[in-house]
Design a protein around this nucleic acid. Structure first.
Length: 478
RNA sequence: GGCGCAUUCGUCUAGGGGUUUAGGACACCUCCCUCUCAAGGAGGAGAUCACCGGUUCGAAUCCGGUAUGCGCUACCA
């Protein structure tokens, strides 16, 4: 089917996958899936100097983690050099490109001069009209040339961006950009255009920063005789203060979010809402709902700031919506990693399953699970004795309450939440205490914390023995 | 410097000439629920829609200018 939509994600492996890039991938993927088209991954590894080891795997891993499955690829541009060479050569022989022998040194000086005279920096087209002889001489000198595009000096190049509408540029503002570098690698412009054509890409969804380069690409498509795809430039992603998203705004690499315990579902949902909206009220959308509803018409044109708070909230929503067993399985690696070393491994799964319902409602990220659950695993609780004494209580009344509670607890046969509640509520009355006072004291004794999951359930999962022992320890502290 | 683009509550956004006293969400505050926390429920505060001018009976919505921000202006992508 020749009309079917084909989009691509074409990252450059110069670092770990940035959330901004991944958001771009997400949109391209959603667009392809919405139209039941194909999503292609292409690695644009044409900058040898900036290539980072392991980046490709990290990028692919991230896509897999988020469930952004691809239908073709990954293709590697570094393996397609001949194709670009052929294209460049063809452009030269057609008269649409030329060899440039200018040294980096000369270019640098030229630019400095231009800036000094407040002129727009750009190549001065020194080699554009070199004669046969001049070229032969440079070749003889052993100068390895680059190939530059012979940009039309006049006229305009415009296009209709699916998101930004009509955009027009004067060709005179575009210089003779490089197509093929002297190391034999193509620049983005050449490789991208050639590959998008060869791979049958129908819609190019890419970051906004490419908007100004699009006329060059269009000019290239024209010179090459290729039909250009449709373009859709996505708004950028920024950090707090509208600054470029960077480390100081928290994680920028998607892999870090994974390590910090964010769910891929939440991440996808959250990222989708950065620059796109379904309507004026829907915040939580499943993967399928995202696919069903996605459209470029609803993509915004303004840069979005990555809002951690909202991500945290959304992640909590997704965590709470998980089936218990699912949550347990996902939390387990975090528990194993985050619980103190003294806690014996492997963790007792029967016990883990019992405590998970208490934790699931309270965790916003999986990384919070160990700290929320720690008191349920460790043998010794570390807390200030003063915490045991509740509001309007004294040491004496606290000791009395704890002792009586201990006594009654020892007699309790069935140690479940209902029985505990049935026993402890009247006990508060008996002691002349408010439930908050008694329960608060017990909570600290049993959990070492003033904030914890509901007391009766907590005590039930801890079990009679452990509770009694902890109360004894508390009494000893007083 | 040149070219391009953008500008609605702190943030993400809805809005596409009158139905808007500009709606929702996060965060924040209050109250309710309640053994604490979390979750949930009900409220509150928060945007003269960057500014100026124009078009129009009527503009956040259309047009122009200004300001600010961002992007591109590399043998980086």
């Amino acid at each position: 089917m020749t009309n079917s939509v084909r989009t691509r994600f074409a990252p450059s492996p110069t670092g770990y996958p940035h959330v901004g890039n991944i958001r771009t991938a997400l949109f391209a993927w959603l667009f392809a899936r919405h139209y039941e088209g194909s999503f292609i991954v292409r690695i644009e590894d044409t900058d040898v100097t900036r290539k980072v080891k392991g980046a490709v795997e990290a990028i692919l891993d991230s896509l897999r983690w988020l469930g952004l499955d691809w239908d073709e690829g990954p293709y590697f541009q570094s393996e397609r050099l001949e194709i670009y060479h052929k294209a460049a050569k063809r452009l030269v022989s057609q008269g649409d490109a030329y060899y440039c022998y200018c040294s980096p040194q000369r270019l640098k000086e030229m630019r400095a001069e231009q800036v000094k005279h407040k002129q727009p920096p750009g190549y001065d087209r020194h080699c554009r009209d070199l004669s046969q002889e001049e070229r032969a001489q440079k070749e003889a000198e052993g100068v390895i040339p680059v190939v530059r595009f012979k940009t039309p000096l006049e006229g305009q190049t415009g296009f209709n961006d699916l998101i930004w509408g009509d955009v027009v540029f004067d060709n005179s503002t575009i210089d003779d950009f490089i197509l093929l570098k002297s190391d034999g690698y193509p620049t983005y412009h050449l490789a991208n255009v050639v590959d998008d054509h060869l791979m049958g890409i129908t819609h190019v969804l890419r970051a906004e920063e490419w908007l100004s380069s699009t006329p060059r690409h269009l000019l290239l498509y024209q010179a090459l005789g290729f039909k250009p795809p449709q373009f859709a430039h996505l708004p950028m992603l920024l950090g707090a203060g509208r600054a470029k998203l960077s480390k100081r705004h928290g994680a920028v690499s998607i892999t870090e979010y994974r390590e910090q315990g964010y769910l891929p579902e939440a991440m996808v949902n959250f990222l989708a809402l950065l620059g796109w909206s379904r309507d004026d009220r829907t915040e939580v959308l499943s993967r399928q709902e995202l696919i069903d509803n996605f459209s470029l018409e609803r993509v915004s044109r303004t840069a979005a700031i990555f809002n951690r708070d909202k991500l945290n909230w959304m992640n909590g929503v997704y965590i709470r919506s998980l089936a218990l067993e699912d949550f347990t399985q996902r939390a387990l690696p975090f528990l194993n990693k985050g619980l103190p070393l003294e806690v014996e491994r492997p963790l007792p799964m029967e016990y883990v399953r019992q405590i998970m319902p208490l934790i699931q409602e309270r965790a916003r990220t999986l990384a919070e699970v160990p700290e929320l659950a720690q008191f349920l695993f460790v043998d010794e609780l570390d807390y200030a004795p003063s915490l045991l004494i509740a509001k309007n209580m004294s040491q004496v009344s606290t000791v009395k309450a704890l002792e009586l509670a201990k006594q009654r607890l020892e007699q309790l046969e069935v140690f479940d939440a209902e029985s505990l509640e049935a026993m402890l509520r009247p006990l508060a009355v008996e002691l002349g205490l408010k439930t908050g006072q008694l329960f608060g004291t017990l909570r600290v004794a049993v959990t070492g914390q003033i904030a914890a999951p509901p007391l009766f359930q907590t005590m039930a999962v801890l079990g009679k023995e452990r509770c009694l022992r902890r109360i004894e320890v508390a009494l000893a502290k007083l």
